[in-house]
Every structure is written in C-alpha cells, then in structure tokens.
Design a protein around this nucleic acid. Structure first.
Length: 289
DNA sequence: CCGCGATCCTGGGGGC
DNA sequence: TGCCCCCAGGATCGCG
C-alpha cells in the first residue's frame, strides 16, 4: 500500500531502529528483483552507520556514513518488517521470536538488515516491483530516478499557482496528470481518487480545463487527504508496533476508492469505477464535474 | 511532446 | 478441487 503516507509511515517506523544506528549485518536472499542489487550490496551496508532517514516521492532514503545513500522503493507490494529486541513479535498469522531461524527466510524475503538497536529489518516484496539501491549521496539529485521528479505534494511551495502552471495546456485527464510523478511527487491511485472527490473534480476532466478555483480546492484536498492518512497511519503504526512490529499496514475507510456501486458519501449518487490509462478510477459522477 | 497500452511479477478471489 | 480470468497501492518503455 505504498503511496506517500504509507512510505512516510514506514519511514517513521524504521527511524528508531535505523537512524543513528550501525548496520551489524546485511544479506540479500535473492538477487532477482526487477532492478538487481548493486555489486557487493551487503558488504557496502555492513558496518555503516545511518546518519539520516528521509523521504523523496515514494522513496525512503537512508544516508550512510560512507557517503552513499540506501534507496528503498516498496513498489506495489513491498513491506518492511521490524523485529525489535527479544520480544515475541507477530508476522501476519504467525508469531515469531526475534531469535528464531525463520525470520527473514520466508518466501519473498529479499533483504535482511540487522542493526545495533538491536533490531532486525526484513524487506519482503512478493511482486518484486520494489528496489533497493546504493547511490552516491552527493549525486542523488542527478540520478535518473530522482532527476525528473516533480514537487513534493506536501511542500509549502506546492500551491494553486504551481499547479495551475503545471496543468496549463495539458490535454491529459486530471487523474493521469496527478499520478505523473514528474508533475507532483508522492501521489498514487488511492489518494488521487480521494483528492479529486474532495475537490469535486471529474477524473476525466482534462488537466488544462480545470477552473482556477477548482485547482485551489484540489491543492487543499491533496494536502488534507495526505496529512490525514499520515496521521492515521502513524496511529495505526503505534498499535502495530506494540502488537506485531509489522510496518506498512494502514487501515482507513476511503470515501470513493474501492467502493464501486456504493452510495456516494454526499448522498447524491452511486460511486462508479472506470479505467483510465490502465488503472481503476473511482468517483461520483454526480458530485465530480 | 502527447497519450495509451503493454510490461515487469506474484497471489488472491470469483465464476464455472 | 481445479482452472481461468481479472484484479492489485508503481513506474518505465515504446508505439502511433
């Protein structure tokens, strides 16, 4: 479930076991992610201290004392599971102790990192769309993964004027424009649907044809829905850490996403599902124009 | 430069 | 129980 709020939530969960901690051991369990691990990936991690954790778009960035940055992307199905010291922790339907052999050896566990927190962090990704890379920190901005990224959705500079300029003359549907990480970084399918609903904009409307007051409403809606989701993820995360140590789960009821056929929360119509550039869009045809 | 579909993967769920 | 098809929170590539 990784869009900006989920990535932010995972980052927050990793912070206490990674930031200002040293990696005592690292290993990759299979090398055939879609993007292969860099050469000697585990070796370049081992012994390194993590100075700072940050987020850019949907990437988690861990700056190491070696001058390299560990770049993490969760793709569609990536999970980070943290096992804190000694205590019994729950993983899905299973309960494991940190010292049991099985941790990090389940199907699709790709990377295991131990730190002196002490903690063990397992990266699991069954669809293998995620990635972990090491890139020179100084050259990060110029790397192809980051060079084209648009403004952060929660940045103060992301405002109505910015979005109006970005949308000007665009003939692509506003739904697709919002998903484009070169325009705004961090939004994904769920929060685009939710933000468009809140702003009362049809996902089919061409980006260049959204009226300026609607653009202002859209910026507000985007920031609101993201902030609410981060807040909800954060609280759900605290519960999860106590109960399971598992990161990346975030329960929230959405207004329109995955609610095809249900009544619109505003009470005027029925939520419809359409497909735009190969992805589901959920919206209320009566509220969103 | 554009919009769009196909593609990379695995697994879950529904229909038959 | 099994098979087949569709679907999934992402991102890139190549086509017309």
């Amino acid at each position: 479930m990784p869009e900006l709020p989920e990535v932010e939530t995972v980052k927050a969960g990793l912070q206490p076991v990674l930031e200002q901690h040293r990696i005592t051991h690292a290993e990759t369990r299979r090398g055939d992610l879609r993007v292969p691990f860099p050469n000697d990936f585990a070796g370049r991690l081992t012994g390194r201290r993590i100075e700072h954790l940050r987020r850019r778009a949907k990437y988690i960035l861990a700056d190491l004392d070696s001058g390299e940055t560990l770049v993490i992307h969760l793709g569609m199905s990536g999970r980070m599971t943290v096992y804190a010291s000694g205590a019994k922790k729950k993983l899905g339907n299973y309960v494991h102790d940190m010292n049991e052999d099985g941790i990090g050896k389940y199907k699709h566990d790709h990377v295991v990192i131990d730190t002196d927190a002490p903690a063990r962090i397992v990266f699991n990704d069954h669809r293998r769309f995620g990635l972990m890379l090491l890139i020179d920190t100084a050259a990060l901005e110029e790397h192809k993964l980051f060079k084209g990224l648009g403004i952060e959705a929660l940045a103060p500079d992301f405002d109505a004027a910015y979005l109006a300029k970005a949308f000007k003359g665009k003939k692509t549907p506003v739904k697709a424009a919002l998903l484009d990480q070169r325009v705004i970084a961090g939004l994904g399918n769920i929060y685009v649907c939710e933000a468009l609903f809140r702003a009362g904009i049809s996902p089919k409307r061409l980006a260049g044809k959204v009226r300026s007051e609607k653009i202002a409403a859209l910026v507000t809606a985007i920031k609101q829905v993201l902030r609410e989701a981060i807040k909800a993820g954060g609280s759900s995360l605290r519960d999860h850490r106590q109960a399971t140590g598992e990161l990346g789960y975030f329960q929230k009821r959405f207004a329109v996403y995955d609610r095809e056929g249900e009544p619109c929360p505003h009470g005027h119509g029925t939520i419809k599902r359409i497909v735009q550039s190969g992805r589901s869009t959920f919206y209320c045809p009566s509220c969103q124009r």
